[in-house]
Design a protein around this nucleic acid. Structure first.
Lengths: 358, 358
DNA sequence: CTGAAAGCGCTTACAG
DNA sequence: CTGAAAGCGCTTACAG
C-alpha cells in the first residue's frame, strides 16, 4: 500500500545474508520506509517513548505486520543500554531446589518481555564473582543472585552498577533488594514438631557450614531445643553438604558413634533422603525406629518412601518473588515482596516417639 | 607509558555513566588510544583475525590490562554477527533429567567462551517455536534443542539460518546434527533383565505418547517380549506423563483392573518412583511382591528405597556431547559425537520372580 | 602489517 | 507530533 519512495538503500549485505539465510530479517529502517515515516518514529511507537499520531501509528503497525519485523534486542541493547535480559546466578542447574526456583524466575520474567541468563556458581565464591563479571559484560539489565557465597559488600558493589535482588540474606542497600526466608524459624518449627511427638533426643544433620542457610537452620534447631529446656548435645549434630550422599554419610557417622536418638532433622530434603537410605541399610524403619524430617519440601519429597515430613520452602514461588522484585527495581519502585512464612508439612516419616525412647 | 596523543574525544556520556556507575567500562577505542594503535588493530589482536607485529601486540595487551578492558559482547554481536551465545531449548528447568543435561551443556560451552541461553518449551510445540523465535531475535550463534515436539521439518528450517543440534532424533540434514540415544535398545535391555529374572508378566508404564522417547521405549518393550516369544498384553500397558504423580496413577489403574504381573517397567525413573509409592500404599513390597525398573538413571534413583534398577541414560553427558557437537558445527566441521550405548544398572528394586508367578 | 571508514540495527537528545 | 543526526562499541572489507 505505501508507495515505495525510493529504491531500497539497504540491499542485504553478504554478512547479513549468511546470518539469516532463511528470511532476510526486517529492520526498523525497512519498516520506517514501508510506512513512510522516519526510523525515530518507529522507534518511539515501539517503545511508547512519545505520543505519535494515530495515523502514522497505524501505518507503522501495518508495515511491521507485513514485514514480520521483530526488533533486534542486540542492537537495542547497544543503542539504548537496555538488553531486556536479567542475569541469574544460581549454584547449580541440576539442583532440585534451585531448578524449581529458576523455573519460577523464567516464567515471571518472560511474560514481561525479559529473558533470563542463567549461570551457575558451583558453590564457589570466586566462580560466582566470575559469573557476575560475565553478566556485566553482557550488559544485563539486572542481576538476581540465589543465595550464594558472595559477601554482602560484593553485592552492594554490584548494586552500584545495576539493580540486584538476592535471596537468603537480610541486607538492605541502595538499588538492592534482599528476599529473605526465615530459615531459623523453619528449623525451629521442624524441631518443635519432633518435640511435640515426644522425641527428646533429636539428631541434626546440618548443611555446609559456609552456607548461610545452614547456619540459620542450625540456630533454629538449637533455639527450639533450648526453649523446650533441653540440652544441645553436640554428639547429635553431624555435618553434611546438602546433597543426598552426604546425608547417608552423616547418618552413618551418627549411628556408628552409637549416639542415641529417636528422630533426625536434616537441614534439607536431599540429606534427609540420604539419611533414610542409611537407616534402611541397617534395617532401621522410618518412622517406627526413627522419625526423620527434612527441609525445603522438594516436589520429589512427597514421593519418598515413606513420604517425607518437611518444612515448606517454596522454591518456585521464591523464584517468582525474586523476579517480581527485580521488575519493580527496574521500574524504579521499591519492591515489597515478602517470602511466605515457613510451615511444617507433616507426612509419614515422622511419628510419635516410642514410650521407651522419650 | 603510552604518551597521550590527543585529548580523549570520548568523555563518558551521561547514559554510559548511569549504565555503569561503578567503573566507566573501558572500550576498545580507549585501549587503542592507550596503546597508540588503531581500533582495527586491537580488534584483530583480540580475534586473531590477522597477524600483528609483536610490538604492537604487547602494547595492546598492556593497555588492556591497565584499563581492565573486557570486550562488549553486545557490540560484538551487532558488528560481527556473532554473539558467542548458544540458545538451548529444553522442556523444563526444573526437571531432574533435563536439569542435569543443561548443566553438562553449560560446562562445556563456558570453557570455550560461549554462554548459554536457556529457554523452556513447557512440553508444547507452539511454546518451543516461540522459544526459537526469541533465540533467533537475540542472535544466538546456534541452537541446541533437547528432544522436544517440533517437527523435523521445522528443525531443518531453523538449520537454514544457523547451526542446530537436536537430541532424541534420528535425522540428518545440512547444518544440523542429531545426537540420538538408542531408547528402543535401552527398553529392550530393561525388559530382558526382567525376563532373565524369570518374570513373564511384565507391566509397562509408558510416557506421553506424543513424545518420541515414549514411543521408542514402548517399541523396545514390545520387541523384547516378542523376541522371548511372549505375547504383548495390552492390559499390562498403562500410559503416564513422565512425572512421578502419573506413575502412581498408572500403577493404581493397573492394580485396580486386577491385572496380574510380577514386575513393572516404567518408561522413566520418575514414573517408576511414583509406581513404587502406589505399591507401598497397598502394602506391596518392592521387589518381593513386584520388581520395578525405570529408565534414565537419575542421580536421585540410587537413593530410592529400595535403590532403583534402571537403564543408564547419562543426561549430563548427553548435554556435554550436544554442546561439543555444536562447537564443531560452529567451527564448520562435521560433528562425530555419539551417545553412549544404553546399559542396565541393576540395583535393588528388581529380583527373581517367585516360583508361583513365573 | 595497519588505518580510515563504513556499517551492524537500534535509541535519543536536538531541533523544529 | 516528527526528522536528521549522532552515537552505542565493535568488526570488516577496502586500501595501502
Amino acid at each position: 500500500m505505501a508507495p515505495p519512495n525510493k529504491p531500497s538503500p539497504a540491499a542485504p549485505s553478504p554478512r547479513a545474508a549468511s546470518a539469516a539465510r532463511a528470511s532476510p530479517a526486517a529492520t526498523l529502517g525497512m519498516v520506517a520506509e514501508a510506512a513512510g515515516v522516519s526510523a525515530s518514529t518507529v522507534s518511539r511507537i515501539l517503545n511508547g517513548t512519545a505520543a505519535v499520531s494515530d495515523q502514522k501509528k497505524q501505518a507503522v503497525y501495518d508495515a511491521i505486520e507485513k514485514l514480520g519485523f521483530v526488533p533486534n534486542p542486540v542492537a537495542r541493547g547497544l543503542a539504548g543500554g537496555r538488553t531486556l535480559s536479567i542475569g541469574v546466578v544460581t549454584q547449580a542447574l541440576d539442583s532440585p531446589f534451585y531448578g524449581s526456583a529458576l523455573s519460577g524466575i523464567e516464567h515471571t520474567l518472560e511474560r514481561r518481555g525479559y529473558s533470563a541468563l542463567f549461570v551457575s556458581g558451583q558453590w564457589d565464591a570466586r566462580e560466582e564473582a566470575r559469573c557476575i563479571e560475565m553478566l556485566l559484560a553482557r550488559r544485563v539489565d539486572g542481576i538476581i543472585v540465589l543465595t550464594g557465597r558472595l559477601t554482602d559488600a560484593a553485592l552492594q558493589e554490584v548494586a552500584k552498577t545495576l539493580p540486584v535482588v538476592v535471596t537468603g540474606r537480610d541486607l538492605v542497600a541502595d538499588n538492592l533488594y534482599a528476599l529473605d526466608f526465615d530459615n531459623a524459624e523453619g528449623a525451629r518449627l521442624a524441631t518443635r514438631h519432633l518435640l511435640e511427638l515426644g522425641h527428646r533426643r533429636i539428631a541434626f544433620i546440618t548443611g555446609d557450614p559456609n552456607h548461610p542457610d545452614a547456619v540459620q537452620r542450625l540456630a533454629g534447631y538449637r533455639s527450639a531445643l533450648q526453649r523446650a529446656g533441653l540440652p544441645v548435645d553436640d554428639r547429635l549434630i553431624e555435618a553434611g553438604l546438602f546433597h543426598e550422599e552426604s546425608g547417608v554419610v552423616a547418618m552413618d557417622r551418627l549411628l556408628d558413634r552409637g549416639a542415641a536418638f529417636s528422630a533426625v532433622f536434616a537441614a534439607n530434603d536431599q540429606m534427609a533422603i540420604g539419611a533414610c537410605l542409611a537407616l534402611y541399610r541397617r534395617s532401621l524403619r522410618v518412622p517406627t525406629d526413627c522419625s526423620v524430617i527434612g527441609f525445603d519440601d522438594l516436589s520429589m519429597s512427597s514421593f519418598c518412601l515413606p513420604p517425607l515430613s518437611t518444612v515448606r520452602h517454596p522454591s518456585h514461588e521464591m523464584g517468582r518473588l525474586a523476579a517480581e522484585a527485580m521488575l519493580r527495581l527496574l521500574e524504579g519502585q521499591r519492591p515489597d515482596q515478602r517470602a511466605p512464612a515457613p510451615q511444617v508439612v507433616v507426612r509419614e516419616s515422622t511419628a510419635p516417639a516410642a514410650a521407651d525412647s522419650t
